[in-house]
Amino acid sequence: MQDRIPILHMSNFLLVTIQVDMHDRLALQLQDDLTSKISATGARGVLIDISSLEMVDSFIGRVLGNISSMSRVLDAKTVVVGMQPAVAITLVELGLSLPGILTALNVAKGMELLSRD
């Protein structure tokens, strides 16, 4: 049995809280699960909370970018919330500034951003 990251379905949105260290297989699994869930539920927005994530590498950064692009294709907005300063610095130093992605400081602000339109 492979462990998965739970995806919560809340009205029109999907909620993902990453609370474990992301390894590559887990990230790809999440990408799979999210895309199928978006098409199954017709969700209009995805909120990914990474406030407990303390380490990222270029692969995870790229997967986050991919999830955002994929959900846009499926007509859902993605907001990444609560990124730690150290993680942000690492991503920028890796050259991954994730230009297509929406970000917010915390879950409340992220939900506000998603429900704005």
């Binding site: 990444v80 609560g82 990124m83 942000a88 991503l91 920028v92 970000t103």
Partner: peptide, 8 residues
Amino acid sequence: AAARLMGA
């Protein structure tokens, strides 16, 4: 870019 990633 780093500030934007955090949502600011």
